[in-house]
């Protein structure tokens, strides 16, 4: 519980410090014709992209009325920390009750908490989406993990690649599994990637990579694991900024 509240506080601090500056609304002739009761995410959350770039997929949110059906004509505003750019930042939901915006991430690597708001009947309804901006090292780790690790660690198959996850007797932990990874120290994780699962009394199905990848490559994969883990990784013993 305390971990959660610290996390929450941290995100607040981040948002406050970043100034919560949102883009000036683009002049749109359309006026909202409806007021929603709730807003939910349709797609576009949990994406990864290098710092400062536009995310591959747009974020799509849906406004619902009291009955939970999609509501066209409601106003939706997107907000994010400084540096995040929405196109458009303010719009009216379309005929299927959805609002779509492309997101350009800020220049600082890490987690971005984005908010979509619609003015409700009594108070505004909001939904939060998390996107992750990758710095150089995390980006390198992302590429390496995609080549060497995801074939087993990612349970999802794609059109180009069938996942090996289901074929393994002992299931590997997906990198987003923060509950597992956050408990392990950098040294332990590095030991496993370098010397294989048996180094920490884990499964031999995890092979050693010390002779295949350079130390900086292994460090990059570690940095990638740390940035994608959910709940977010908070190294012990670090002091966080007060302001």
């Amino acid at each position: 519980m305390s971990q959660r509240s610290i996390t929450g506080a941290m995100l607040l601090v981040l948002a406050a410090a970043a100034g919560c500056k949102h883009q000036p609304a683009t002049a749109s002739a359309a006026k909202p014709t409806a007021t929603g009761a709730a807003i939910v995410e349709s797609s576009g959350g949990k994406q990864l992209g290098p710092t400062g770039t536009t995310l591959k997929d747009p974020i799509i949110v849906q406004v619902n009325d009291d009955q939970g059906t999609a509501l066209p004509g409601a106003l939706v505003q997107f907000h994010g920390p400084a540096g995040v750019h929405f196109e458009p930042a303010e719009q009216i939901t379309d005929s299927s009750g959805q609002a779509t915006a492309t997101v350009t991430l800020g220049t600082i690597a890490g987690r971005y908490q984005l908010t979509a708001t619609t003015p409700g009947k009594s108070q505004p309804a909001t939904v939060q989406l998390t996107e992750i901006a990758l710095g150089y090292q995390q980006q390198l780790g992302f590429v390496l993990a995609d080549k060497y690790c995801n074939r087993c660690h990612d349970p999802e198959s794609s059109a180009e690649r069938v996942s090996n996850y289901d074929n393994l007797e002992v299931k590997p932990h997906p990198f987003t599994e923060g509950d597992t990874y956050n408990k392990m120290s950098d040294a332990d994780l590095l030991a496993i990637t370098q010397h294989g699962g048996p180094a920490l009394n884990r499964s031999a199905l995890m092979p050693p990579y010390a002779n295949t990848l350079s130390p900086s490559d292994l460090q990059a994969i570690l940095a990638f694991i740390r940035v994608v883990s959910d709940p977010p990784y908070r190294p012990a013993g670090t002091v966080y900024a007060q302001k």
């Binding site: 601090v13 981040l14 410090a17 970043a18 710092t51 920390p81 400084a82 220049t107 600082i108 690597a109 890490g110 710095g135 150089y136 090292q137 995390q138 900086s216 460090q219 940095a223 670090t238 002091v239 966080y240 900024a241």
Partner: peptide, 18 residues
């Protein structure tokens, strides 16, 4: 290294590069 958590420049640590 410890300033990696500062959420803004100019005081944040530079991300790791080679």
């Amino acid at each position: 290294a410890t300033l990696a958590d500062v959420p803004y420049q100019p005081f944040r640590k530079h991300p790791a590069i080679p």
